[in-house]
Nucleic acid binder design. Sequence first.
RNA 1: GUGGGUGUAGCUCAAUGGUAGAGUCCCGGAUUGUGAUUCCGGUUGUUGUGGGUUCGAGCCCCAUCAUCCACCCCA
Length: 420
Amino acid sequence: MSGKKIQRLRGFKDILPEETEKWQKAEEIIQKVFHQFNFKEIRVPVLEQNDLFQRSIGDVTDIVQKEMYSFKDRHGDTVAMRPEGTASVVRAYIENNLFYPPSVQKLYYFGAMFRYERPQAGRLRQFHQAGAEVFGSQEPYIDAEVIVALYTILRELNIENPTVHLNSVGCEVCRPNYLSYLKIFFEKNKEGFCPLCQERMLTNPLRVLDCKVESCKNLLSTVEGTYQHLCDNCDTHFEEVKKNLNLLGLTFTLDKFLVRGLDYYTKTAFEITSSSLGSQDAIAGGGRYDKLVEELGGPKTEAVGFAIGLERLISLMPEGRAGKRPDVYMISLGETAKEKAIKLLNDIRKEGFSGEINYQDSLKSSFKKASKGNFRFAILIGDEEVKEGVVSFKDLDAGEQQRISHNASEIIAQMQKLTP
RNA sequence: GUGGGUGUAGCUCAAUGGUAGAGUCCCGGAUUGUGAUUCCGGUUGUUGUGGGUUCGAGCCCCAUCAUCCACCCCA
């Protein structure tokens, strides 16, 4: 080895074979559940025009202001690596006229997202999300259905104690009302808040609501939440969502201060957390965004969606997919035996069986590798076998060994006989 | 972006400022062609990197990089 080692970028991770079993299981279950709810997969690019995210996520949010990987490409266009999935899916929905013919569109996606943040437990610069979006319905039932789909995924993956937090953040009618209510409250109680909160009252009043300082929390216990200041329209919608969730047997906790960090949310907002995660405790989050499609140049289209953080999800999974067991471990001793073994393995693989060959270790260590590798059968070819035109065929589970003819069909028949 | 902890063998970790070690893993062997356990033997390091202090630095100091934890924000 010479030369300087190149290491991966900060906040970026290699996902090694040991962990990919969990990833594969997560992906399998997620796809299965999405299909149960009649979602179709969409795949969108990782790179988009910078403007897309500014206009959708909001240009005063932290994500856009300080966390985006955005740069000028060789042509001089300002582009950005997506920090989340919804914006791209909405763009694709509009650009490909998926709103025609008019009907409900249910889409899901998987993908890597990028945010230039300081890495921490459960927080990376490249991370992965699985997300779902439903376009073209303002039915409260759809909000509930989407939450149930999300919850189903977590349940099927045996995630420990997930908690569903629910709120409604209102629309462009009720939000200003709520903000002026907050403003009055803050003015009355300004002195009791921490310096940071006093700052936030001016810059981002909603952020004051989830301050962790004790004195602030005490003061806030008497503040009313967003869902207590909804207009009639939003209020009935919220009531219906709750009713439907109860109907579907999903328990949730109302979180009057749940505010999501992206500007496009309206009405329903939800989040799923787990106490086993540490400081970054959200596994998934989402909500309704009835204005976004219009704002990005599409027809008036209401929508709901969510995204699951796959790294966080996977860290909570008790187990991965049971790896498929490899079938045959070929062991050969000597040159002629090696040639026979290579050809035999090739024939066996052609028939759809999996296998590995070892022609350089000692016999003992070869068998050791066969059992460590969880192989079902071992086939040994040495001088004796070559001479007699056979192979030694061993059932590694039973520990029984026999000599059988060295042609592939014989061996395959033997394997099929022993494999249920 | 701010604050704190940690970087020693592939992995998990030792080493009052005085010759860098153990376990594990891997490889070989224990009547020469068989998986476990046990036993014997063997390999492995620019102590993250670069400076500085010192007769002497894995250990002290500075810088840098990485990593972990928290703030912030969010998946």
